[in-house]
Design a protein around this nucleic acid. Structure first.
Length: 269
DNA sequence: AAATTTGTCAACCGCGCGTAA
DNA sequence: CTTACGCGCGGTTGACAAATT
């Protein structure tokens, strides 16, 4: 069964937005907030479909957007998160304040892919392109979504060189997710603390993924089961993904939930 | 200087999911 | 239980700019 179009396409503007359209949208949202995107265009006096309005607002007009070039830190964070999450741009964007999924997706495709290739790393698998250079003794760890091993050296962001014979993927011990101290015997220094790629956060279940990305989270069920329910954070739930990879972030909902869990456990247990 | 190629990124499209009716 | 709707996501497109020939 086909779906009805999201809006009446006839008489709708398409393509680049004009300053006047931007102003109408901004004025309306300032006044009324983000509401129903479907009805917003008519209410705001725009000849645009709701999806187009939403996109324009989310990707360009939102006041909290960070403009300008990505920093080296952001680059590395994107790479880390991509190795864990794959092309889940909205999840990745959720970890970078002021950046949008679209922006990150574009940036990935135009810059980071090349950057990784110049390092000799396959941007899809995060593995060295020349697999034969990897000693068999080194274990690799499946990435979470595409079930491919992940390897890269984040401690050397600008190494334009062929991949070292020994990938410097380091692992942290289970139970050490809440701090940035590497405990692996292979760890040598703080700078070498890379990702714990043995994270057991599985591919987000559909529901948890939706929970993460939608404003209409079912808070009731969270309150009843606790925000750390396995459904939400995977089989070894308890600490959110940010915390696990060492990016505790106040703007991240799950980090806050993790905090709440800690408090809850300290009271209950 | 003109033509062509390459890079960038805003915007569109189609689909899946959750939910209300 | 079924269906339609609204939202949000990821993939793709295309216009424009910059670089190269």
């Amino acid at each position: 069964m086909g779906r009805s179009p999201c809006c009446e396409k006839a008489h709708m503007n398409k393509g680049a937005w004009t300053k006047e359209e931007d102003q109408l949208l901004v004025d309306y949202i300032r006044k009324h907030g983000e509401g129903c995107w479907r009805s917003l265009p008519r209410a705001a006096g725009l000849q645009r479909c709701g999806k187009s309005c939403r996109l324009r607002w989310m990707n360009y007009l939102r006041p909290d957007l960070k403009r300008g070039n990505f920093t080296e830190e952001e680059d590395e964070l994107i790479i880390k998160l991509h190795s864990l999450l794959g092309n889940k741009w909205s999840l990745i964007a959720g970890r970078l304040a002021g950046r949008t999924d679209n922006e990150i997706k574009n940036y990935w495709n135009t810059h980071i892919k090349r950057k990784l290739l110049s390092r000799g790393i396959d941007p899809n698998t995060h593995r060295p392109i020349n697999e034969s250079t990897i000693p068999p003794s080194k274990t690799t760890t499946p990435s979470l979504l595409h079930d491919e091993p992940v390897q890269f050296d984040l401690a050397k962001p600008d190494q334009h060189q062929t991949v070292k014979p020994e990938p410097t993927v380091l692992y942290r011990e289970e139970g050490d997710y809440n701090n940035n101290n590497c405990t692996s015997s292979e760890t040598t220094s703080e700078e070498d603390c890379v990702l714990n790629l043995e994270l057991s956060v599985g591919p987000a279940t559909t529901r948890s993924y939706r929970y993460e990305s939608t404003r209409k989270a079912n808070l009731d069920s969270i309150e009843s089961t606790g925000p750390w329910g396995s459904e939400l954070f995977g089989a070894q739930a308890g600490v959110c993904l940010c915390c696990r990879i060492g990016f505790h972030n106040e703007s991240c909902r799950n980090c806050r939930v993790s905090d709440a869990r800690t408090i809850w456990e300290s009271k209950i247990l």
